[in-house]
Each structure stands twice: as structure tokens, then as C-alpha cells.
Amino acid sequence: MGGCGVPEVEVLFENHSLTPLSLELNVSGFTVKVKAYVDTGFMGEISGVKISSEYARYVKHKVISTINLADGSEVPIYYTPNGRLTKLEGKACDLELPVVFMDGPSLLGCRFLKRCKLCLDGWKSVGSLVV
């Protein structure tokens, strides 16, 4: 059993990447359900969850800042410190996470992984995530 009451979650390798995880988030009071990829390249203290920028318009109290991309560019983003992970792969959970609003696929970053134990078995194409 993990730190936020979630038992081990199985992750699989498919097409040379980890399968996305189903998340349910509470973002400033409203519920968002997304499928997010684990991204070890998403780093920094706000690297909790990244979801589509479409959701930003529903969040009342959001903060503006910038993040650096791999090509060296600096892009503006909205984020809210007021996010909670309430379900992971259908299992109830309660983890405070900052949420970044940005175009592209949903991601789980290093700020989330800091609270987890991620084990990967490349030979068997399986892994496990303990929150």
C-alpha cells in the first residue's frame, strides 16, 4: 500500500513507451478525467500534472509563468497550485499536485514521481508504480 492509500498500479510498455494512466483530478473545485503519460523530462517544482490548456478557462485562480522547452525556447503557461489527484487508475487517492495548462498530451511529471516508486522491467515489458 502506497503513501496516499493507493496499492501498486501496473504500467505496461507498448510501442516503446509506457501506457498512459487514467487520472481523476480536482482542479480548483472541478473534476477533470484524463489519460496521462509519465514524463521524466517534465521537471521543476510545478511538474505535477500537465493537462490541455482548454481547461484553463474554467479555473478562476490561475497563475501565469513560463517554462523552458527542449529546443531552448521559453513558453508562457497558466498553472494552478490548487490541484489534487483524487483517482489513479480508478483507485481513490488524495495527493496535492500543481496543475500546468499547456497544449499537447497530458503528462505526469517529476513532482509526481518524487512521491512514487516506479519500477520498470524492460525484458517483460511491464512496470509498477507505487504512490
Binding site: 521537471m43 485562480h61 497563475v63 509563468s65 513560463t66 517554462i67 523552458n68
Partner: peptide
């Protein structure tokens, strides 16, 4: 800082920067 912002419940639109660094996260 995020905790402080939640506690204060500021209604204004805010900009956050790390003085001398600029961007607050990276996506590589």
C-alpha cells in the same frame, strides 16, 4: 510560494518568476 498563494486566496491575476532565472520549470 504555492502554499502561500492558496492560503491567501488572491483573486488578482498573478505572474510568478524566479528572480535571476526566469522560467520556473522545464520540459525536455
Amino acid at each position: 510560494l504555492n502554499r502561500l498563494l492558496i492560503r491567501k486566496g488572491v483573486e488578482e491575476e498573478l505572474y510568478v518568476e524566479r528572480v535571476g532565472y526566469g522560467a520556473i520549470a522545464s520540459m525536455l
